[in-house]
Measured scan of single mutants.
Amino acid sequence: EGEAHRVLFGFVPETKEELQVMPGNIVFVLKKGNDNWATVMFNGQKGLVPCNYLEPVELR
């Protein structure tokens, strides 16, 4: 579910809505907001990550 994206930079959450991710993680974007935040799914957890920390990736 969602579009696959690769994480470019590590992100440490500052609020409980945000999700910690590391460079190279593959996350699935469920929704992109107008505020430059994306709702993503990673390892069964859902949370917010900055859009500019993500790049689309083709999964084969």
Rank of each mutant, 00 (worst) to 15 (best):
Glu58Leu: 10
Leu30Asn: 04
Ile26Phe: 05
Leu8Gly: 04
Leu59Tyr: 13
Val21Arg: 03
Arg6Trp: 00
Gly10Thr: 14
Pro23Thr: 06
Lys31Trp: 05
Asn43Cys: 06
Glu1Pro: 05
Val7Phe: 01
Ala4Arg: 10
Thr39Met: 09
Gln45Ala: 10
Tyr53Asn: 08
Val29Ala: 02
Gly47Thr: 06
Glu17Phe: 09
Asn36Leu: 06
Asn43His: 08
Tyr53Met: 08
Val12His: 14
Phe11Lys: 03
Gln45Pro: 00
Phe28Gly: 09
Val27Thr: 00
Val29Asp: 00
Pro13Leu: 06
Asn36Ala: 07
Glu58Asp: 13
Leu8Trp: 00
Cys51Pro: 05
Ile26Cys: 05
Cys51Arg: 13
Val40Glu: 00
Lys16Leu: 09
Gly10Phe: 06
Glu55Trp: 05
Arg6Gln: 09
Lys31Tyr: 10
Phe11Met: 00
Lys32Ala: 05
Trp37Met: 15
Gly2Trp: 07
Phe42Gln: 06
Glu14Ile: 09
Asn25Trp: 03
Val49Ala: 02
Gly24Val: 03
Leu19Lys: 00
Arg60Met: 13
Met22Asp: 12
Met22Cys: 13
Thr39Leu: 12
Val40Lys: 02
Thr39Lys: 08
Phe28Leu: 11
Glu1Val: 11
Lys31Gln: 12
Leu8Lys: 10
Leu19Glu: 03
Thr39Asn: 08
Pro23Ser: 04
Val21Ser: 01
Asn43Ile: 00
Lys46Leu: 10
Glu1Thr: 09
Phe9Cys: 12
Leu59Gln: 15
Gly47Pro: 02
Val49Lys: 04
His5Asp: 00
Val57Cys: 12
Pro13Asp: 02
Glu18His: 12
Val21Phe: 01
Glu17Ala: 13
Glu55Ile: 05
Gly44Pro: 00
Val40His: 01
Asp35Pro: 06
Leu8Asp: 00
Leu54Ser: 03
Pro56Ser: 08
Val12Lys: 14
Thr39Ser: 10
Pro13Glu: 01
Trp37Cys: 09
Glu1Lys: 11
Phe11Gln: 03
Arg60Asp: 14
Glu55Asp: 05
Leu30Met: 12
Val29Phe: 00
Val49Ser: 02
Phe28Lys: 15
Leu19Pro: 06
Asn52Lys: 13
Pro23Glu: 09
Val12Ser: 13
Val49His: 00
Asn25Leu: 01
Met41Trp: 12
Asn25Glu: 13
Gln45Ser: 12
Ala38Glu: 00
Val12Gln: 14
Leu54Asp: 00
Val40Ala: 14
Phe11Asn: 09
Leu30Glu: 09
Pro13Arg: 04
Gly24Leu: 01
Lys46Asp: 03
Met41Asp: 11
Glu3Ile: 14
Gly24Thr: 06
Val12Ala: 11
Val49Asp: 00
Glu58Asn: 15
Pro50Met: 00
Arg60Thr: 15
Leu54Arg: 03
Ile26Met: 05
Lys31Ile: 06
Ala4Trp: 10
Val40Gly: 03
Asn36Arg: 10
Trp37Arg: 14
Gly47Cys: 05
Arg60Pro: 15
Phe9Pro: 14
Gly33Arg: 13
Asn43Gly: 10
Met41Pro: 03
Gly33Cys: 09
Asn43Gln: 13
Gly44Leu: 01
Glu14His: 12
Pro50Trp: 00
Phe28Gln: 15
Glu14Arg: 14
Glu55Met: 07
Glu58Gln: 13
Glu17Trp: 08
Trp37Phe: 09
Cys51Lys: 06
Glu1Ala: 09
Leu54His: 00
Gln20Ile: 04
Val57Ile: 11
Leu59Thr: 15
Gly33Asn: 13
Phe28His: 15
Tyr53Gly: 01
Val29Ile: 03
Leu8Met: 10
Gly2Ala: 08
Glu14Cys: 10
Asn34Trp: 08
Gly24Gln: 02
Gly33Pro: 08
Lys32Tyr: 07
Thr39Ile: 04
Ile26Gln: 07
Gly2His: 06
Gly47Val: 07
Cys51Val: 15
Met41Tyr: 08
Val27Phe: 02
Gly44Met: 05
Tyr53Cys: 12
Gly33His: 15
Phe9Ala: 15
Glu17Pro: 08
Tyr53Asp: 00
Asn36Gln: 10
Glu58Cys: 12
Asn52Asp: 14
Glu14Phe: 08
Gly24Ser: 00
Thr15Tyr: 08
